[in-house]
Simulated assay, not measured.
Amino acid sequence: MDALRASELPVALGNGADEWSPDLQLPHSMWEIFGSMDDVAGDALALAFAQKHCAAGGEGWRWLWVQDARSTRSSGRPFLHGLPPPLRSGFIHVEAGSAADALWAMEEGVRCGELSFVIGEIVGDPKVLDFTAIRRLVLAAERNGVMLYLLRREGFANLSAARLRWRVTAAPSALHRWNSMAPGVPRVRAELFRGRGLRPGQFWLEHGVGSHEPDHSLLVVPDLRDRPVEPDYRATG
């Protein structure tokens, strides 16, 4: 699955609602995204969130992706030319030897005001990734106004100080605009199971599409339903 295609803001729950939406303005902090080894839906969602949060900063973003050794062995390194074009030139990759080193690199990243955002990737539940470690990352991210998206591959959702916590899986793509036999825009199914001041919920998400490729808008789409039979098949049915 291809990767889906800012300054600190006050908390705003929009129209008095407590439900999350892509247009909700939240302060830069740390979000946890739980996913499996079997797909890159978590990576895609983190990149989509990052572009949505940082779009106000214009092009030329500088950002950091940190992986521990188990992440690199399990899912490989990020592929530069598979990233959204605006993110390629400012991409910095760190491969840490251990989870402890990866957490240190993430914390140093969010302390750097020159970075637009940081993506961290850790497999499983290493002992160093406890409530205290996550709290340190949250405080550093919020103090310096740099978003941190922590990808938890096959991780267990223990007690955490993260502002938002997601579970994500790949979903069937949208229908193609011109060819009903081809896949359309990638989609993910995301469950917000914890959010400070927000009600839990489940969402089907995709990027808004401009003339040829996804833009910075992140859209909530309706749940999938049985699709109508194509006219040619209906005629021969």
Rank of each mutant, 00 (worst) to 15 (best):
A161S: 15
R194Q: 12
G145K: 12
H212R: 15
V220A: 04
R167H: 01
R153D: 00
H216I: 11
A170H: 05
S211T: 14
L115M: 10
I119G: 02
G201L: 02
F203Y: 14
V123N: 06
I122M: 07
R177K: 07
M106K: 00
A140L: 00
A141I: 03
P126E: 10
G109W: 01
L205Y: 00
R163K: 07
G155W: 04
I119W: 02
A170F: 00
S211E: 13
H216P: 00
E213N: 09
D130H: 08
A161W: 10
P126W: 09
E114Y: 06
R136D: 02
R152I: 02
R177Y: 03
A171D: 00
G124H: 05
L198N: 08
S180Y: 13
E142K: 09
L129T: 01
G145H: 09
Y149F: 10
F193I: 07
F117D: 09
L137P: 09
V188I: 06
A190T: 10
L175C: 06
E121K: 12
E114C: 09
A141S: 04
L129A: 05
L219A: 14
F156T: 15
A140T: 00
I119C: 07
D215W: 10
V168H: 08
A182V: 05
L198K: 07
H212E: 15
R163F: 02
C112S: 03
S217E: 12
L148M: 05
V146W: 08
R196H: 02
H207S: 14
A162G: 15
P172F: 00
V146L: 05
H216E: 13
P126R: 12
D130V: 03
I119Q: 06
I134Q: 01
F193S: 07
P186C: 06
S116Y: 12
L164C: 13
D130N: 12
R111M: 06
W178S: 10
L198I: 04
E213V: 13
H212D: 13
A170W: 03
R194L: 08
A161N: 14
E206T: 11
S211A: 10
A157I: 10
P183D: 09
A133D: 08
